[in-house]
Amino acid sequence: MKRKRVEYEGKLIAVEGLDGSGKSTQLYLLKKWLELQNLKVFFTEWNSSVVVKSATSKAKKRQLLTPTTFSLIHATDFADRYERQILPLLKGGYLVLADRYVYTAYVRDVTRGCDMDWVRNLYDFAIKPDMTFYFNVPLEVALDRILSNRPKLKYFEAGMDIGLSSDLYESFRLFQGRIHQAYGSLSDELNFNVIDATQTIEHQQQLLRRVVSEAIDLSMFRKHTVKPRVQ
């Protein structure tokens, strides 16, 4: 499908990576830094549309999702955030920060057995981010960070629906392993900005800030100062 060119003044920055890669922490720190410079910033995260989320969590709790409906319901959630917030805010000249973007669906849905072309078509309406950072971390490190305090893993989070193992923790390990592989090849294909997520948090954040400020003229994104009204 031929993509229509969408004109917008803002910039879209997305972060991707495994659970436990530290990407959310990094994006949070980046957001703080941008906000303190009085810039127009909007943050959005995966699976958080007000309209769709209740359906998704209900469906997950009752384990009602198949790979197809899992994929579609997340695409619906994304589309709602995209059409109502991401795109309008980009047009309004915002720096939009996305904790996970369409690539999360690419890797998860295909790992679940959906057709790659079909999944990519689903998200074909979405613009390509101006910058995509992939927080790359060895599988064992990510697993350790998540599993070291024996959290209560959720059914779909652990990939139990695709039957890799009947043990929740073992299933999570195997599932994350596959996701990790899928991220790796996607990152090569799409030339993500790869961040070595084994470095210290401060070091990664410095790098992130440097790369962002080199690529984007941040002074263009200042909020307009409110002028006092003439009585």
């Binding site: 309209v51 579609l72 695409a75 619906t76 589309a79 709602d80 059409e83 109502r84 689903l122 309406f125």
Partner: peptide, 9 residues
């Protein structure tokens, strides 16, 4: 409140 693509999905 839903836009076109969201509604379709």
């Amino acid at each position: 409140i839903l836009s076109k693509t969201t509604m379709s999905l």
